[in-house]
């Protein structure tokens, strides 16, 4: 029973992280219909910026004092701001000129950007090739225990921050003028622009939002697993991004709520698979779930099958 509850809790915690990243994939896809494979690198950059900021602030000294309580918030906001800018820049410089190009080109550009970020991140002047010790910016204590299940502050913060961000996004997309513009653009770009929507601006904002969410996820990720911050070219980052992309697809890519559902599902699948089946086959569970879901529901769980126009 304890094991079941603990697994459930861990699954939800990891799942909400995945959901945050999956949102970035799904939002870009919803509007531009392409898979932004550079997203995993934005996420990586977010994690590293959190480290760089804490190192600069003197919170990352090995064996040093416990960092102040506000340190987590500072690092989170710094990495969100930086990645927001990065996302804006990437869209402006690399994707916008390709607005009319075939989608595959945009995809290749995304791969190019991903390679670029990874390899430039490896430079000595930036993050380097060494893994770094991520300081524990959030207090790592158990808040309360129910039925022998430890609810740790870190995990609860992860879930809370993820929920808040997703709530804000829900409100933004479904309750504001901007959100309506975003949805209009995702239905039909030419018509939306005829309606007086500044399409370029909406797309820019979408990228910025997606990237800030990824940065937040990057930060939360290194808080949840505070040991080694893997070096920029490590396959961990790409694999993680891939899993979250799978989450977005399972939920129905382009669908904001679907991404959240997919993220949590993948998190649960992984944790339950690891706890009750064998722990080293996680990737197989994730991809098998994907194939099964797509065979049953080709457009994902919440995705609508699009009617083809002739």
């Amino acid at each position: 029973m304890t094991k079941l509850l603990q697994t459930l809790f861990d699954g939800v915690a990891v799942g909400s992280l995945y959901a945050l990243i999956a949102l970035g994939y799904t939002m870009v896809y919803g509007i531009l219909q392409f898979s932004n494979f550079a997203h995993s690198d934005i996420f990586m950059t977010g994690a590293w910026i959190a480290y760089v900021v804490s190192a600069a602030a003197g919170w990352a000294v090995i064996g040093g004092d416990t960092p102040p309580l506000y340190s987590g918030l500072v690092a989170l906001l710094a990495s969100m701001a930086f990645c927001g800018l990065l996302g804006f820049g990437i869209e402006r410089l690399a994707y916008r000129p390709l607005r009319k190009a075939p989608r595959l080109n945009v995809l290749i550009t995304a791969i190019g950007i991903s390679l670029f970020l990874e390899n430039i991140g490896q430079r000595k002047e930036l993050f380097g090739t060494q893994p770094q010790k991520m300081p524990q910016l959030l207090p790592d204590t158990t808040l309360f225990t129910v039925a022998d299940v430890n609810f740790r502050i870190v995990d609860l913060t992860v879930i809370a921050v993820a929920l808040v961000l997703m709530g804000v996004l829900q409100w933004l997309v479904f309750r504001t003028r901007l959100g309506r513009a975003m949805r209009a653009v995702s239905y039909n770009i030419p018509v939306a622009s005829l309606m007086g929507i500044n399409v370029d601006r909406v797309i820019s904002i979408t990228f910025v939002i997606g990237s800030t969410l990824a940065a937040a996820a990057g930060f939360l990720y290194v808080m949840k697993y505070p040991g080694a911050l893997k070096q920029p070219a490590d396959s961990t980052w790409i694999l993680l991004g891939l899993k979250c992309f799978v989450a977005a697809v399972i939920g129905g890519i382009g669908n904001v709520r679907g991404a959240m559902l997919g993220g949590v599902l993948i998190g649960l699948m992984e944790m339950f698979g690891a706890a009750y089946l064998s722990p080293h086959m996680r990737d197989i569970y994730v991809f098998s779930l994907l194939i099964i879901v797509l065979l049953v529901r080709p457009a994902g769980l919440l995705g609508k099958a699009t009617v083809e126009k002739v």
């Binding site: 697993y225 396959s235 944790m271 706890a275």
Partner: peptide, 17 residues
């Protein structure tokens, strides 16, 4: 005798066993 895959971040299942 437990295994993980390089890149995994969560070892709690293996360690619990």
């Amino acid at each position: 005798e437990q295994a993980y895959t390089g890149g995994d971040q969560d070892f709690s299942a293996q360690l619990t066993t």
